[in-house]
């Protein structure tokens, strides 16, 4: 699936009228996200970045085929797919545990889109496209953990939730996939995949929770 805007215009066959339309791609946070500072002034304690336009595939092992699925993943990503709640960084994808014998493949640019993955996992796993089903928010900053404590019941202490830890959990009664990416500038980075139709609502809840610490908001096309 292409993930960029497809400008398109057509001239109607029979009539003389000209219809013009384009396939603008819009993130579910397109309206709610306003880049810049938010909340308390001064040095921002929380940094929120929405990652645009990614490919996300759900890979679920078929009955009794978990081993074959892991082998297929190894062949494709040269990495061991997570068999416990962890996020594994491969060269050009992140494999995030999403439940028993299943994981998500997060990548960019169509290289590991569902179509690209199909052949490798044929027979060992069922694939389901989730690229448009989620919004991806990256949370960092001095107060990231304090802010997330208002949303998440998971213990995010570094001794418990180290780099690479992942959780299929809930925020505001809504399922989310949460994992800790590589540290950036010495600070922990927490990534959140949230359901697209809940994204705007959850975004406002996140802003409310973060406002007291001061927030800097942005978006990016790069995976964290």
């Amino acid at each position: 699936m292409s993930s960029s805007a497809i400008p398109y215009s057509t001239i109607r066959m029979e009539g003389a009228s000209v219809a013009e339309f384009s396939w603008d791609i819009r993130s579910p946070l397109d309206r709610a996200l306003v880049a810049g500072p938010y909340g308390a002034q001064g040095k921002a304690g929380v940094s929120l970045t929405e990652i645009h336009n990614f490919d996300l595939a759900q890979v679920m092992a078929r009955r009794g085929k978990a081993g074959e699925m892991i082998a297929a993943a190894k062949a494709r990503f040269s990495a061991a797919a997570p068999e416990t709640p962890r996020a594994v960084s491969a060269a050009d994808a992140t494999l995030i545990w999403s439940g028993p014998d299943q994981f998500l493949v997060l990548s960019k640019g169509g290289k590991h889109s569902i179509e690209a993955l199909a052949a490798g996992f044929a027979g060992s796993a069922s694939l389901s496209d989730q690229s448009h089903a989620r919004a991806l928010i990256s949370v960092s900053g001095d107060k990231a953990r304090a802010m997330l404590a208002k949303l998440s019941s998971i213990d995010l202490h570094p001794s418990v939730f180290a780099v690479g830890a992942a959780a299929a959990t809930s925020m505001d009664h809504t399922s989310v996939t949460l994992w800790r990416g590589k540290d950036r500038d010495g600070q922990a980075v927490f990534n959140l995949l949230v359901f697209a139709t809940f994204a705007e609502s959850l975004w406002h809840t996140i802003l409310d929770s973060a406002a007291e610490y001061g927030v800097t908001i942005g978006h990016s096309d790069e995976l964290a």
Binding site: S17, F21, D129
Partner: peptide
Amino acid sequence: VPARYGEAMARNLMIAGKP
């Protein structure tokens, strides 16, 4: 259509359906 094209679909249905 994939959800991020949902809004475009609504707009395009309006354009294409105008006649």
